[in-house]
Design a protein around this nucleic acid. Structure first.
Lengths: 110, 110
DNA sequence: TTAATTAATTACTTTTCGTAAGTAAGTATA
DNA sequence: TATACTTACTTACGAAAAGTAATTAATTAA
């Protein structure tokens, strides 16, 4: 099959961001408002090692902003940029889809 | 931080499907209509080994249907079920987002 | 008999993930 | 002064997943 790819490079890039594990959940969680490292860590169950990596990645993509408050102990708040917040409609779509098409039994256990 | 996860298990499951590499692109490609193995392989640039794995996975999730036509050479058509097609609005959202927020330079190169 | 085609699968290497422990900075407590 | 505490990371390392390439099975044509 010699078919060339017809995929839009921008779309492909967008999908590559979303299809990296944890990244979508971090964005979803930050849609609730700015949060600190340990809050995100606890809320989605990611390890510190990977959360650190994903936040850096999202910062590089211009989707997340990092604010340092030199209190004691230090407080660092992460929040979405406009680019990040623009994924809200997509997240709502995914919520709707999951409510309609995923049943309790196959959902993630905790 | 002792915070419990507030994530909806259904949403978490949905996100885990989408955040597995290639899965989203396979669904996106099949939204164009039923296709055979080698067509999908060529169009999104996935290896046969992983495409085989992802199609099985999507079949198990009830999102993809596999039809065998015992011609010569054998033809096997993959298509989306209703559950799979229901992701079309989300894919449209991601397309829009990528057009607005990803610029040429950072897009996937080919 | 050899080759061709499609849809996989197997073997092997590289990359990423997950867990746990360690570090740095800045207090607070004994 | 020494020790402990808190947050936000980083490092080390074994396990799992991904990437590449070669191989297989079924069928048929040259």
């Amino acid at each position: 099959m010699t078919n060339q790819s017809q995929l839009c490079p921008k779309f492909e890039k967008a999908m590559s961001i979303l299809s990296k594990r944890w990244t979508g959940l971090v964005v979803y969680q930050l849609l609730r408002g700015s949060q600190r490292f340990c809050e995100i860590e606890a809320s989605i169950g990611i390890s510190g090692r990977l959360l650190s990596d994903r936040l850096k990645h999202l910062e590089n993509e211009g989707m997340v902003k990092r604010d340092v408050y030199p209190e004691t102990p230090i407080r660092i708040e992460y929040s979405l940029t406009e680019k990040g917040r623009a994924l809200e409609p997509l997240m709502n779509e995914l919520e709707q889809w999951s409510k309609t098409w995923i049943d309790e039994k196959e959902a993630v256990q905790r």
